Amino acid sequence: MTVGTAVAVLVGVLALATGLGLLLRHRTGRARSAGTAASTRPDADGLALDTGYGTAATFVQFSTPTCARCPATRRQLAVVADQHEGVRRIEVDLAEHPELARRFDVMQTPTVLLLDADRSVHTRFEAHPAHRSSSQPSTPS
Rank of each mutant, 00 (worst) to 15 (best):
H26S: 14
Y53W: 08
R75L: 12
D82F: 00
P71Y: 01
V80Y: 07
D45C: 05
A81P: 03
G29H: 06
T28W: 09
L49C: 05
G46W: 00
R30D: 12
T51C: 01
L24Y: 13
L22N: 09
T40K: 01
R69H: 15
A78I: 01
L20Q: 11
Q76G: 03
A37F: 02
V60Q: 04
G29Q: 07
A44R: 01
G35A: 09
V80W: 14
T58N: 03
G19F: 08
T73S: 14
R74A: 11
L49N: 12
T58Y: 01
L24G: 14
L20R: 11
A38Q: 05
P65D: 13
A44N: 02
T55H: 10
H26K: 10
A57H: 01
T64A: 15
A57W: 00
T36P: 00
S33V: 09
C67E: 08
T51D: 09
L24K: 15
T40E: 13
E85T: 13
L77K: 00
D45Y: 06
V79S: 10
R75E: 15
T51M: 00
F59E: 02
L24F: 11
V80R: 11
A38Y: 00
L77Y: 02
V79I: 10
S63D: 13
R88H: 15
R69V: 13
G35P: 07
T36K: 09
S63Q: 10
V80N: 10
R75H: 08
L47W: 04
